[in-house]
């Protein structure tokens, strides 16, 4: 088991190099130039050229990449073009702000998804199940940015309950609602599948009360696919943060990312891409670990 996870961690190295390679070149393919910030009649061409040379932008792209990679191996991701601060520092400042949004969104989603999905499956076809089904499909059909704007329109502009920006509630609500819809469906169908299994009938046959049959025998099995889905949905959560933080002017990593892209702040973009990639891969590794905890049939590295 430990060997398996060490192997998985080592596999991270080529993966991260691959991700960095692709994002670096795609980033440079996009039109625009960081020095566009300096477009100003007062800046002399020599000055501009000096800045470009200083940032390494006068080199061919592949040289720039290798320089970046060399420094990145030493955990030096360079300085932001706009603020002059080290990229690591910029990210470290923004990360807690993003986590303040993501962690509660994730936990609230779990707390609602599991019981609602279970009740929906157990009371299949009831008004509760039908309502949940209707709401989930509605939720899944709504793009995050649209939902965010509509919530802002309703709660900030019309009702004046919350300020439109700088408040935790609305972005949290947007993020939770977006994730909730799909996950509840997954939990419901996972549960429905398990409830049809022979061992559920066998559990009833040995006289277990329905409560034990559902919450012990069925739920434990229905959590297996959910753990996988949760691992896979973390990238969505991160992607969602880019949009939601921008809409609600939430000063986290997502917003920093979007700003950096608009400003062609290459070091910061690369820093955020690499950091997100790392977080996502680690989350998937944790999901695998969780998977082996809930399903005794899976023991990694035991062939």
């Amino acid at each position: 088991m430990r060997k398996y996870f060490i192997k998985r961690l080592l596999q991270l190295i080529p993966l991260l190099i691959g991700i960095s390679l692709i994002s670096f070149f795609v980033m440079h393919l996009a039109p625009g130039d960081p020095t566009a910030l300096f477009i100003d009649p007062n800046v002399r061409p020599e000055e501009l050229a000096r800045v470009r040379a200083n940032w390494g932008l006068d080199q061919p792209v592949y040289i720039q990449y290798f320089l970046w990679l060399k420094n990145a191996c030493l955990l030096d991701f360079g300085q932001s073009y706009t603020t002059g601060q080290p990229v690591i520092y910029e990210i470290a400042q923004r990360l807690p702000v993003t986590l303040l949004l993501m962690v509660p969104a994730f936990l609230i989603t779990l707390l609602i998804t599991i019981p609602v999905g279970v009740i929906s499956a157990v009371r299949k076809g009831s008004w509760f199940d039908n309502t949940v089904t209707f709401l989930s499909f509605t939720g899944m059909a709504m793009p995050t940015f649209w939902l965010g704007l509509m919530l802002m329109l309703l709660f900030s502009v019309k009702l004046h309950w919350f300020p439109a920006v700088g408040n935790l509630i609305l972005p949290l609500l947007t993020m939770t609602l977006g994730n909730l819809a799909g996950l509840t469906r997954y939990q419901r169908s996972a549960m429905l599948e398990v409830l049809g299994q022979d061992f559920i009938r066998a559990a009833r046959a040995k006289g277990l009360p329905e409560r034990v049959v559902i919450f012990k025998h069925a739920l434990r099995n229905a959590l297996i696919p959910i753990v996988t889905i949760l691992g896979l949905s973390l990238p969505d959560l991160f992607g969602g943060a880019f949009i939601i933080e921008t809409i609600f002017a939430w000063p986290g990593m997502g917003r920093l990312g979007v700003q950096s892209i608009f400003q062609r702040d290459y070091p910061v973009i690369m820093g955020i891409v690499m950091f997100s990639a790392l977080l996502i891969v680690i989350a998937n590794l944790l999901a695998d670990l969780g998977y082996s905890l809930v399903d005794p049939r899976i023991r990694y590295g035991k062939e």
Binding site: D198, F199, R220, I224
Partner: peptide, 17 residues
């Protein structure tokens, strides 16, 4: 009253000892 079933492969819960 107890019962045993046809398929012992599917009648035991895979996640409990």
């Amino acid at each position: 009253i107890s019962m045993i079933f046809q398929d012992p492969f599917t009648s035991l819960n895979p996640v409990f000892t």
